[in-house]
Write a protein that binds this DNA or RNA. Sequence first.
DNA 1: CGCCCTTTTGAAGAAAATCAAGGGCAGTGG
DNA 2: CCACTGCCCTTGATTTTCTTCAAAAGGGCG
Lengths: 235, 235
Amino acid sequence: MQAFYDRVRTLVRLNQRDSAELETLPWSSKKVGKYRDFVSAGDQPDFAFVVISGWAARYSLKKDGTRRITSLMLPGDFCGIHAVCGARMDHGIMTLTPCDFGRIQRQDIQQAAKVAPGIADALWRAKLIDESILRMWLLNHDDALHALSHLLCELHARASAINIVQEGRFHAPLTQVHLGDALGLTAVHVNRQLKLLREAGLAEISSGEVSVPNISALRQSCSFDPSYLHASVSG
Amino acid sequence: MQAFYDRVRTLVRLNQRDSAELETLPWSSKKVGKYRDFVSAGDQPDFAFVVISGWAARYSLKKDGTRRITSLMLPGDFCGIHAVCGARMDHGIMTLTPCDFGRIQRQDIQQAAKVAPGIADALWRAKLIDESILRMWLLNHDDALHALSHLLCELHARASAINIVQEGRFHAPLTQVHLGDALGLTAVHVNRQLKLLREAGLAEISSGEVSVPNISALRQSCSFDPSYLHASVSG
DNA sequence: CGCCCTTTTGAAGAAAATCAAGGGCAGTGG
DNA sequence: CCACTGCCCTTGATTTTCTTCAAAAGGGCG
Protein backbone atom coordinates (compact mmCIF):
# COMPACT_ATOMS: atom_id res chain seq x y z
CA MET A 1 0.00 0.00 0.00
CA GLN A 2 3.02 2.28 -0.03
CA ALA A 3 2.02 3.38 -3.53
CA PHE A 4 -1.27 4.55 -2.09
CA TYR A 5 0.20 6.34 0.91
CA ASP A 6 2.67 8.08 -1.35
CA ARG A 7 -0.06 9.09 -3.71
CA VAL A 8 -2.20 10.59 -0.96
CA ARG A 9 0.77 12.63 0.18
CA THR A 10 1.22 14.07 -3.28
CA LEU A 11 -2.41 15.17 -3.15
CA VAL A 12 -2.51 16.90 0.20
CA ARG A 13 -0.24 17.78 3.06
CA LEU A 14 -1.28 15.51 5.90
CA ASN A 15 -1.00 16.42 9.55
CA GLN A 16 -0.01 13.81 12.09
CA ARG A 17 -3.53 12.75 12.79
CA ASP A 18 -4.39 12.37 9.10
CA SER A 19 -1.21 10.45 8.58
CA ALA A 20 -1.87 8.10 11.44
CA GLU A 21 -5.41 7.55 10.29
CA LEU A 22 -4.24 6.83 6.76
CA GLU A 23 -1.70 4.23 7.72
CA THR A 24 -4.00 2.43 10.11
CA LEU A 25 -6.77 2.15 7.56
CA PRO A 26 -7.77 -1.50 7.50
CA TRP A 27 -7.29 -3.02 4.07
CA SER A 28 -6.90 -6.35 2.41
CA SER A 29 -5.12 -7.33 -0.73
CA LYS A 30 -6.64 -8.81 -3.84
CA LYS A 31 -4.70 -10.20 -6.75
CA VAL A 32 -6.25 -10.27 -10.21
CA GLY A 33 -4.90 -11.78 -13.42
CA LYS A 34 -4.33 -10.02 -16.73
CA TYR A 35 -7.29 -8.90 -18.80
CA ARG A 36 -9.86 -9.61 -16.11
CA ASP A 37 -13.06 -7.77 -15.47
CA PHE A 38 -12.26 -6.58 -12.01
CA VAL A 39 -15.42 -4.55 -11.44
CA SER A 40 -18.42 -4.69 -13.72
CA ALA A 41 -20.87 -2.01 -14.69
CA GLY A 42 -23.90 -2.18 -12.45
CA ASP A 43 -21.96 -3.29 -9.39
CA GLN A 44 -22.57 -1.45 -6.18
CA PRO A 45 -19.29 -2.15 -4.49
CA ASP A 46 -18.90 -2.16 -0.74
CA PHE A 47 -15.22 -1.46 -1.12
CA ALA A 48 -13.02 1.23 -2.45
CA PHE A 49 -9.95 0.02 -4.28
CA VAL A 50 -6.43 1.19 -4.75
CA VAL A 51 -4.09 -0.02 -7.44
CA ILE A 52 -1.02 -1.31 -5.64
CA SER A 53 0.70 -2.68 -8.71
CA GLY A 54 -0.18 -3.13 -12.36
CA TRP A 55 -2.26 -1.19 -14.87
CA ALA A 56 -6.02 -1.16 -15.19
CA ALA A 57 -8.62 0.68 -17.26
CA ARG A 58 -12.14 1.95 -16.88
CA TYR A 59 -14.21 1.12 -19.90
CA SER A 60 -17.71 1.00 -21.26
CA LEU A 61 -19.14 -1.19 -23.94
CA LYS A 62 -21.07 0.66 -26.57
CA LYS A 63 -24.22 -0.50 -28.23
CA ASP A 64 -22.37 -1.37 -31.39
CA GLY A 65 -20.20 -3.76 -29.42
CA THR A 66 -17.05 -1.67 -29.45
CA ARG A 67 -15.23 -0.88 -26.26
CA ARG A 68 -14.30 2.57 -25.12
CA ILE A 69 -11.62 3.07 -22.49
CA THR A 70 -12.41 6.15 -20.44
CA SER A 71 -9.43 6.17 -18.15
CA LEU A 72 -6.22 4.42 -17.32
CA MET A 73 -5.17 3.57 -13.80
CA LEU A 74 -1.60 3.23 -12.59
CA PRO A 75 -0.19 2.14 -9.26
CA GLY A 76 -1.39 4.48 -6.52
CA ASP A 77 -4.61 5.40 -8.28
CA PHE A 78 -7.98 4.97 -6.60
CA CYS A 79 -10.89 3.30 -8.18
CA GLY A 80 -14.42 2.82 -7.13
CA ILE A 81 -14.55 5.73 -4.76
CA HIS A 82 -18.18 5.35 -5.71
CA ALA A 83 -18.23 3.15 -2.66
CA VAL A 84 -17.83 6.23 -0.52
CA CYS A 85 -21.39 7.21 -1.20
CA GLY A 86 -22.80 3.84 -2.15
CA ALA A 87 -23.42 4.64 -5.80
CA ARG A 88 -23.68 2.14 -8.58
CA MET A 89 -20.88 1.73 -11.10
CA ASP A 90 -21.83 2.89 -14.58
CA HIS A 91 -18.71 1.44 -16.13
CA GLY A 92 -16.44 -1.53 -15.75
CA ILE A 93 -12.83 -1.84 -14.72
CA MET A 94 -10.52 -4.29 -16.39
CA THR A 95 -6.91 -5.14 -15.71
CA LEU A 96 -4.32 -4.63 -18.41
CA THR A 97 -1.68 -6.56 -16.52
CA PRO A 98 -1.80 -8.83 -13.51
CA CYS A 99 -2.77 -6.44 -10.75
CA ASP A 100 -2.56 -6.18 -7.03
CA PHE A 101 -5.37 -4.15 -5.49
CA GLY A 102 -5.82 -2.83 -1.99
CA ARG A 103 -9.38 -3.12 -0.80
CA ILE A 104 -10.84 -0.81 1.82
CA GLN A 105 -14.28 -1.20 3.27
CA ARG A 106 -16.79 1.49 2.62
CA GLN A 107 -17.43 2.30 6.24
CA ASP A 108 -13.74 2.44 7.01
CA ILE A 109 -13.01 4.98 4.33
CA GLN A 110 -16.07 6.96 5.30
CA GLN A 111 -14.96 6.96 8.89
CA ALA A 112 -11.43 7.98 7.99
CA ALA A 113 -12.71 10.82 5.83
CA LYS A 114 -14.78 12.04 8.72
CA VAL A 115 -12.09 11.84 11.37
CA ALA A 116 -9.22 13.01 9.19
CA PRO A 117 -10.22 15.93 6.97
CA GLY A 118 -6.96 15.60 5.10
CA ILE A 119 -8.08 12.24 3.82
CA ALA A 120 -11.42 13.58 2.71
CA ASP A 121 -9.56 16.31 0.87
CA ALA A 122 -7.31 13.79 -0.77
CA LEU A 123 -10.28 11.81 -2.03
CA TRP A 124 -11.81 14.98 -3.45
CA ARG A 125 -8.61 15.98 -5.11
CA ALA A 126 -8.15 12.56 -6.61
CA LYS A 127 -11.65 12.77 -8.05
CA LEU A 128 -11.05 16.24 -9.41
CA ILE A 129 -7.90 15.02 -11.11
CA ASP A 130 -9.80 12.10 -12.63
CA GLU A 131 -12.29 14.60 -13.90
CA SER A 132 -9.59 16.88 -15.29
CA ILE A 133 -8.05 14.00 -17.14
CA LEU A 134 -11.41 13.03 -18.56
CA ARG A 135 -11.97 16.61 -19.61
CA MET A 136 -8.60 16.67 -21.36
CA TRP A 137 -9.47 13.52 -23.23
CA LEU A 138 -12.59 15.25 -24.41
CA LEU A 139 -10.66 18.37 -25.30
CA ASN A 140 -8.05 16.62 -27.37
CA HIS A 141 -10.13 14.25 -29.36
CA ASP A 142 -10.23 16.45 -32.43
CA ASP A 143 -6.95 15.72 -34.07
CA ALA A 144 -5.71 12.16 -33.89
CA LEU A 145 -2.01 12.94 -33.78
CA HIS A 146 -2.55 15.61 -31.17
CA ALA A 147 -4.68 13.26 -29.09
CA LEU A 148 -2.13 10.49 -29.22
CA SER A 149 0.77 12.78 -28.36
CA HIS A 150 -1.19 14.26 -25.49
CA LEU A 151 -2.04 10.85 -24.12
CA LEU A 152 1.60 9.83 -24.25
CA CYS A 153 2.53 13.03 -22.44
CA GLU A 154 -0.09 12.32 -19.80
CA LEU A 155 1.16 8.80 -19.26
CA HIS A 156 4.74 9.98 -19.18
CA ALA A 157 3.89 12.53 -16.53
CA ARG A 158 1.90 10.09 -14.43
CA ALA A 159 4.56 7.44 -14.80
CA SER A 160 7.21 9.96 -13.76
CA ALA A 161 5.21 10.81 -10.67
CA ILE A 162 5.46 7.22 -9.50
CA ASN A 163 9.07 6.87 -10.53
CA ILE A 164 8.78 4.30 -13.25
CA VAL A 165 10.38 6.39 -15.97
CA GLN A 166 14.04 5.78 -16.64
CA GLU A 167 15.87 7.67 -19.35
CA GLY A 168 12.66 8.59 -21.06
CA ARG A 169 11.40 5.02 -21.11
CA PHE A 170 8.63 3.32 -19.22
CA HIS A 171 6.70 0.13 -19.51
CA ALA A 172 3.07 0.54 -20.58
CA PRO A 173 1.02 -2.54 -21.40
CA LEU A 174 -0.94 -0.87 -24.17
CA THR A 175 -1.52 -2.41 -27.55
CA GLN A 176 -2.54 -0.25 -30.47
CA VAL A 177 -6.04 -1.63 -30.02
CA HIS A 178 -6.07 -0.32 -26.45
CA LEU A 179 -4.81 3.05 -27.57
CA GLY A 180 -7.54 3.11 -30.19
CA ASP A 181 -10.16 2.27 -27.60
CA ALA A 182 -8.84 5.02 -25.37
CA LEU A 183 -8.61 7.64 -28.10
CA GLY A 184 -11.77 6.75 -29.94
CA LEU A 185 -9.81 5.81 -33.05
CA THR A 186 -9.28 2.62 -34.96
CA ALA A 187 -6.15 0.64 -34.24
CA VAL A 188 -5.15 1.09 -37.86
CA HIS A 189 -5.22 4.81 -37.54
CA VAL A 190 -3.35 4.73 -34.25
CA ASN A 191 -0.70 2.75 -36.04
CA ARG A 192 -0.32 5.43 -38.68
CA GLN A 193 -0.08 8.21 -36.12
CA LEU A 194 2.48 6.27 -34.12
CA LYS A 195 4.48 5.96 -37.28
CA LEU A 196 4.44 9.73 -37.67
CA LEU A 197 5.63 10.19 -34.09
CA ARG A 198 8.34 7.61 -34.59
CA GLU A 199 9.53 9.21 -37.81
CA ALA A 200 9.54 12.61 -36.13
CA GLY A 201 11.67 11.15 -33.36
CA LEU A 202 9.11 12.24 -30.79
CA ALA A 203 7.99 8.92 -29.36
CA GLU A 204 8.07 5.24 -29.99
CA ILE A 205 6.28 2.24 -28.58
CA SER A 206 7.74 -1.18 -28.97
CA SER A 207 6.95 -4.36 -27.12
CA GLY A 208 5.07 -2.59 -24.38
CA GLU A 209 7.72 0.03 -23.76
CA VAL A 210 7.08 3.68 -24.39
CA SER A 211 10.18 5.62 -25.31
CA VAL A 212 10.21 9.39 -25.33
CA PRO A 213 13.71 10.63 -26.15
CA ASN A 214 12.80 14.28 -25.72
CA ILE A 215 9.80 14.94 -23.56
CA SER A 216 9.96 18.70 -24.01
CA ALA A 217 9.71 18.31 -27.75
CA LEU A 218 6.78 15.95 -27.46
CA ARG A 219 5.03 18.25 -25.03
CA GLN A 220 5.56 21.21 -27.24
CA SER A 221 4.19 19.36 -30.24
CA CYS A 222 0.83 18.98 -28.54
CA SER A 223 0.83 21.95 -26.17
CA PHE A 224 0.87 19.68 -23.16
CA ASP A 225 0.70 21.46 -19.83
CA PRO A 226 1.02 19.01 -16.94
CA SER A 227 -0.50 21.29 -14.35
CA TYR A 228 -3.95 19.78 -14.69
CA LEU A 229 -2.65 16.51 -13.30
CA HIS A 230 -2.19 17.74 -9.75
CA ALA A 231 -3.61 21.22 -9.60
CA SER A 232 -0.90 22.28 -7.18
CA VAL A 233 -0.93 21.06 -3.61
CA SER A 234 -1.64 24.05 -1.48
CA GLY A 235 -4.29 22.78 0.92
CA MET B 1 -32.12 28.33 -3.36
CA GLN B 2 -35.12 26.04 -3.55
CA ALA B 3 -33.72 24.62 -6.79
CA PHE B 4 -30.63 23.62 -4.84
CA TYR B 5 -32.46 22.10 -1.90
CA ASP B 6 -34.66 20.14 -4.27
CA ARG B 7 -31.67 18.95 -6.17
CA VAL B 8 -29.89 17.71 -3.06
CA ARG B 9 -32.99 15.76 -2.11
CA THR B 10 -33.01 14.01 -5.45
CA LEU B 11 -29.44 12.95 -4.78
CA VAL B 12 -29.77 11.52 -1.29
CA ARG B 13 -32.38 10.91 1.33
CA LEU B 14 -31.68 13.44 4.05
CA ASN B 15 -32.43 12.87 7.70
CA GLN B 16 -33.73 15.71 9.85
CA ARG B 17 -30.32 16.82 10.87
CA ASP B 18 -29.00 16.85 7.31
CA SER B 19 -32.08 18.72 6.22
CA ALA B 20 -31.77 21.33 8.93
CA GLU B 21 -28.10 21.78 8.18
CA LEU B 22 -28.81 22.16 4.47
CA GLU B 23 -31.43 24.82 4.86
CA THR B 24 -29.45 26.84 7.35
CA LEU B 25 -26.36 26.90 5.16
CA PRO B 26 -25.32 30.54 4.89
CA TRP B 27 -25.36 31.74 1.30
CA SER B 28 -25.53 34.88 -0.70
CA SER B 29 -26.89 35.58 -4.11
CA LYS B 30 -24.98 36.76 -7.14
CA LYS B 31 -26.52 37.87 -10.39
CA VAL B 32 -24.56 37.64 -13.61
CA GLY B 33 -25.46 38.85 -17.09
CA LYS B 34 -25.61 36.80 -20.26
CA TYR B 35 -22.42 35.50 -21.84
CA ARG B 36 -20.22 36.46 -18.90
CA ASP B 37 -17.14 34.70 -17.69
CA PHE B 38 -18.37 33.82 -14.28
CA VAL B 39 -15.33 31.87 -13.14
CA SER B 40 -12.06 31.82 -15.02
CA ALA B 41 -9.55 29.05 -15.43
CA GLY B 42 -6.83 29.45 -12.83
CA ASP B 43 -9.12 30.83 -10.17
CA GLN B 44 -8.94 29.29 -6.76
CA PRO B 45 -12.42 30.13 -5.56
CA ASP B 46 -13.25 30.46 -1.90
CA PHE B 47 -16.87 29.74 -2.69
CA ALA B 48 -18.91 26.91 -4.04
CA PHE B 49 -21.71 27.96 -6.35
CA VAL B 50 -25.14 26.72 -7.14
CA VAL B 51 -27.13 27.69 -10.21
CA ILE B 52 -30.39 29.13 -8.95
CA SER B 53 -31.70 30.21 -12.31
CA GLY B 54 -30.34 30.31 -15.84
CA TRP B 55 -28.00 28.17 -17.88
CA ALA B 56 -24.22 28.11 -17.71
CA ALA B 57 -21.39 26.11 -19.25
CA ARG B 58 -17.96 24.87 -18.31
CA TYR B 59 -15.51 25.44 -21.10
CA SER B 60 -11.88 25.44 -22.02
CA LEU B 61 -10.09 27.38 -24.69
CA LYS B 62 -7.85 25.31 -26.87
CA LYS B 63 -4.49 26.35 -28.21
CA ASP B 64 -5.94 26.88 -31.66
CA GLY B 65 -8.31 29.43 -30.20
CA THR B 66 -11.45 27.34 -30.44
CA ARG B 67 -13.66 26.85 -27.43
CA ARG B 68 -14.77 23.53 -26.11
CA ILE B 69 -17.76 23.26 -23.82
CA THR B 70 -17.27 20.37 -21.42
CA SER B 71 -20.53 20.54 -19.54
CA LEU B 72 -23.79 22.37 -19.29
CA MET B 73 -25.27 23.53 -16.02
CA LEU B 74 -28.96 23.96 -15.31
CA PRO B 75 -30.78 25.35 -12.29
CA GLY B 76 -29.97 23.29 -9.22
CA ASP B 77 -26.54 22.20 -10.47
CA PHE B 78 -23.43 22.79 -8.43
CA CYS B 79 -20.31 24.32 -9.77
CA GLY B 80 -16.96 24.91 -8.34
CA ILE B 81 -17.15 22.22 -5.72
CA HIS B 82 -13.42 22.54 -6.20
CA ALA B 83 -13.75 24.97 -3.38
CA VAL B 84 -14.42 22.09 -1.04
CA CYS B 85 -10.80 21.11 -1.17
CA GLY B 86 -9.28 24.38 -2.26
CA ALA B 87 -8.20 23.26 -5.70
CA ARG B 88 -7.57 25.50 -8.65
CA MET B 89 -10.03 25.67 -11.53
CA ASP B 90 -8.65 24.16 -14.72
CA HIS B 91 -11.53 25.48 -16.79
CA GLY B 92 -13.80 28.46 -16.97
CA ILE B 93 -17.51 28.86 -16.44
CA MET B 94 -19.57 31.15 -18.61
CA THR B 95 -23.22 32.04 -18.47
CA LEU B 96 -25.46 31.28 -21.44
CA THR B 97 -28.31 33.38 -20.08
CA PRO B 98 -28.55 35.91 -17.29
CA CYS B 99 -27.97 33.77 -14.23
CA ASP B 100 -28.64 33.84 -10.57
CA PHE B 101 -26.07 31.99 -8.50
CA GLY B 102 -26.08 30.98 -4.86
CA ARG B 103 -22.69 31.39 -3.26
CA ILE B 104 -21.59 29.34 -0.27
CA GLN B 105 -18.35 29.87 1.57
CA ARG B 106 -15.81 27.14 1.48
CA GLN B 107 -15.63 26.68 5.21
CA ASP B 108 -19.40 26.59 5.53
CA ILE B 109 -19.81 23.82 3.02
CA GLN B 110 -16.90 21.94 4.54
CA GLN B 111 -18.44 22.27 7.96
CA ALA B 112 -21.85 21.16 6.71
CA ALA B 113 -20.35 18.13 5.01
CA LYS B 114 -18.63 17.21 8.23
CA VAL B 115 -21.64 17.63 10.48
CA ALA B 116 -24.22 16.25 8.08
CA PRO B 117 -22.97 13.14 6.29
CA GLY B 118 -25.97 13.28 4.00
CA ILE B 119 -24.68 16.52 2.55
CA ALA B 120 -21.23 15.09 2.02
CA ASP B 121 -22.86 12.19 0.21
CA ALA B 122 -24.88 14.56 -1.94
CA LEU B 123 -21.75 16.41 -2.99
CA TRP B 124 -20.08 13.15 -3.90
CA ARG B 125 -23.05 11.98 -5.86
CA ALA B 126 -23.30 15.24 -7.71
CA LYS B 127 -19.65 14.91 -8.67
CA LEU B 128 -20.11 11.32 -9.77
CA ILE B 129 -23.01 12.36 -11.96
CA ASP B 130 -20.91 15.14 -13.47
CA GLU B 131 -18.30 12.55 -14.20
CA SER B 132 -20.82 10.15 -15.70
CA ILE B 133 -22.09 12.85 -18.00
CA LEU B 134 -18.57 13.68 -19.04
CA ARG B 135 -17.89 10.02 -19.69
CA MET B 136 -21.01 9.81 -21.84
CA TRP B 137 -19.89 12.77 -23.87
CA LEU B 138 -16.65 10.94 -24.49
CA LEU B 139 -18.49 7.73 -25.33
CA ASN B 140 -20.82 9.28 -27.86
CA HIS B 141 -18.46 11.46 -29.77
CA ASP B 142 -17.98 8.99 -32.61
CA ASP B 143 -21.04 9.56 -34.71
CA ALA B 144 -22.25 13.14 -35.00
CA LEU B 145 -25.95 12.36 -35.30
CA HIS B 146 -25.76 9.95 -32.40
CA ALA B 147 -23.90 12.48 -30.29
CA LEU B 148 -26.39 15.22 -30.99
CA SER B 149 -29.39 13.01 -30.30
CA HIS B 150 -27.82 11.81 -27.10
CA LEU B 151 -27.13 15.33 -25.94
CA LEU B 152 -30.71 16.35 -26.61
CA CYS B 153 -31.90 13.31 -24.66
CA GLU B 154 -29.64 14.26 -21.78
CA LEU B 155 -30.91 17.81 -21.73
CA HIS B 156 -34.49 16.64 -22.00
CA ALA B 157 -34.00 14.33 -19.04
CA ARG B 158 -32.28 16.96 -16.94
CA ALA B 159 -34.86 19.56 -17.88
CA SER B 160 -37.63 17.14 -16.95
CA ALA B 161 -36.04 16.58 -13.58
CA ILE B 162 -36.40 20.26 -12.79
CA ASN B 163 -39.87 20.51 -14.30
CA ILE B 164 -39.20 22.83 -17.18
CA VAL B 165 -40.46 20.49 -19.88
CA GLN B 166 -43.99 21.04 -21.07
CA GLU B 167 -45.49 18.89 -23.80
CA GLY B 168 -42.08 17.84 -25.01
CA ARG B 169 -40.80 21.37 -25.21
CA PHE B 170 -38.28 23.25 -23.16
CA HIS B 171 -36.30 26.40 -23.48
CA ALA B 172 -32.57 25.92 -24.05
CA PRO B 173 -30.40 28.91 -24.86
CA LEU B 174 -28.10 27.00 -27.18
CA THR B 175 -27.05 28.25 -30.59
CA GLN B 176 -25.68 25.84 -33.15
CA VAL B 177 -22.26 27.24 -32.37
CA HIS B 178 -22.71 26.25 -28.72
CA LEU B 179 -23.85 22.79 -29.71
CA GLY B 180 -20.82 22.50 -31.94
CA ASP B 181 -18.54 23.58 -29.11
CA ALA B 182 -20.16 21.03 -26.84
CA LEU B 183 -20.07 18.17 -29.33
CA GLY B 184 -16.69 18.91 -30.82
CA LEU B 185 -18.21 19.57 -34.23
CA THR B 186 -18.44 22.57 -36.48
CA ALA B 187 -21.62 24.60 -36.34
CA VAL B 188 -22.15 23.82 -40.00
CA HIS B 189 -22.16 20.13 -39.33
CA VAL B 190 -24.44 20.52 -36.34
CA ASN B 191 -26.81 22.32 -38.62
CA ARG B 192 -26.90 19.40 -41.03
CA GLN B 193 -27.50 16.87 -38.30
CA LEU B 194 -30.27 18.99 -36.82
CA LYS B 195 -31.86 19.02 -40.22
CA LEU B 196 -31.82 15.22 -40.26
CA LEU B 197 -33.46 15.08 -36.85
CA ARG B 198 -36.06 17.61 -37.92
CA GLU B 199 -36.85 15.70 -41.09
CA ALA B 200 -37.10 12.48 -39.13
CA GLY B 201 -39.56 14.18 -36.79
CA LEU B 202 -37.35 13.33 -33.82
CA ALA B 203 -36.40 16.77 -32.57
CA GLU B 204 -36.36 20.38 -33.55
CA ILE B 205 -34.74 23.49 -32.19
CA SER B 206 -36.10 26.86 -33.05
CA SER B 207 -35.54 30.20 -31.44
CA GLY B 208 -34.06 28.69 -28.33
CA GLU B 209 -36.77 26.14 -27.81
CA VAL B 210 -36.09 22.43 -28.04
CA SER B 211 -39.05 20.42 -29.16
CA VAL B 212 -39.12 16.65 -28.84
CA PRO B 213 -42.49 15.33 -29.98
CA ASN B 214 -41.68 11.74 -29.11
CA ILE B 215 -38.99 11.29 -26.53
CA SER B 216 -39.14 7.50 -26.64
CA ALA B 217 -38.41 7.54 -30.33
CA LEU B 218 -35.50 9.93 -29.88
CA ARG B 219 -34.10 7.86 -27.04
CA GLN B 220 -34.38 4.70 -29.03
CA SER B 221 -32.62 6.27 -31.98
CA CYS B 222 -29.50 6.82 -29.90
CA SER B 223 -29.83 4.08 -27.29
CA PHE B 224 -30.21 6.61 -24.53
CA ASP B 225 -30.48 5.14 -21.06
CA PRO B 226 -31.13 7.86 -18.47
CA SER B 227 -30.01 5.82 -15.50
CA TYR B 228 -26.52 7.31 -15.56
CA LEU B 229 -27.94 10.69 -14.66
CA HIS B 230 -28.90 9.85 -11.11
CA ALA B 231 -27.43 6.43 -10.42
CA SER B 232 -30.42 5.50 -8.27
CA VAL B 233 -30.87 7.03 -4.86
CA SER B 234 -30.44 4.26 -2.38
CA GLY B 235 -28.08 5.74 0.15
C1' DC C 1 6.35 -25.92 -36.23
C1' DG C 2 2.00 -23.66 -36.29
C1' DC C 3 -1.21 -20.66 -34.13
C1' DC C 4 -2.80 -16.41 -32.38
C1' DC C 5 -2.20 -11.81 -31.47
C1' DT C 6 -0.23 -7.61 -32.80
C1' DT C 7 1.73 -4.56 -36.03
C1' DT C 8 2.18 -2.77 -40.60
C1' DT C 9 0.86 -1.11 -45.13
C1' DG C 10 -2.27 -0.22 -49.17
C1' DA C 11 -6.50 1.22 -51.45
C1' DA C 12 -11.25 2.67 -51.43
C1' DG C 13 -15.01 4.79 -49.17
C1' DA C 14 -17.50 7.51 -45.57
C1' DA C 15 -17.69 11.24 -42.36
C1' DA C 16 -16.73 15.74 -41.03
C1' DA C 17 -14.15 20.10 -41.84
C1' DT C 18 -13.45 23.94 -44.60
C1' DC C 19 -14.58 27.46 -47.78
C1' DA C 20 -18.05 30.26 -49.57
C1' DA C 21 -22.33 32.59 -50.10
C1' DG C 22 -26.98 33.87 -49.15
C1' DG C 23 -31.16 34.60 -46.11
C1' DG C 24 -33.88 35.81 -41.87
C1' DC C 25 -34.45 38.57 -37.98
C1' DA C 26 -33.72 41.85 -34.23
C1' DG C 27 -31.69 45.92 -32.83
C1' DT C 28 -29.70 50.58 -34.03
C1' DG C 29 -29.47 54.83 -35.87
C1' DG C 30 -30.36 58.11 -39.50
C1' DC D 1 -39.98 54.55 -41.53
C1' DC D 2 -36.30 52.44 -43.57
C1' DA D 3 -31.51 51.33 -44.24
C1' DC D 4 -27.76 49.24 -41.93
C1' DT D 5 -25.43 45.93 -39.04
C1' DG D 6 -24.57 41.90 -36.53
C1' DC D 7 -25.77 37.40 -35.36
C1' DC D 8 -27.55 33.15 -36.38
C1' DC D 9 -29.21 29.69 -39.52
C1' DT D 10 -29.01 27.36 -44.02
C1' DT D 11 -27.13 25.23 -48.13
C1' DG D 12 -23.67 23.87 -51.71
C1' DA D 13 -19.03 22.46 -53.32
C1' DT D 14 -14.54 20.87 -52.22
C1' DT D 15 -10.92 18.91 -49.36
C1' DT D 16 -9.11 16.62 -45.35
C1' DT D 17 -9.34 13.12 -42.01
C1' DC D 18 -10.52 8.81 -40.48
C1' DT D 19 -12.68 4.32 -41.26
C1' DT D 20 -13.26 0.15 -43.54
C1' DC D 21 -11.68 -3.67 -46.01
C1' DA D 22 -7.92 -6.44 -47.16
C1' DA D 23 -3.59 -8.64 -46.93
C1' DA D 24 0.80 -9.70 -45.18
C1' DA D 25 4.61 -9.85 -41.93
C1' DG D 26 6.63 -10.23 -37.16
C1' DG D 27 6.85 -12.36 -32.48
C1' DG D 28 5.84 -15.13 -28.56
C1' DC D 29 4.39 -19.53 -27.01
C1' DG D 30 1.98 -24.06 -26.86
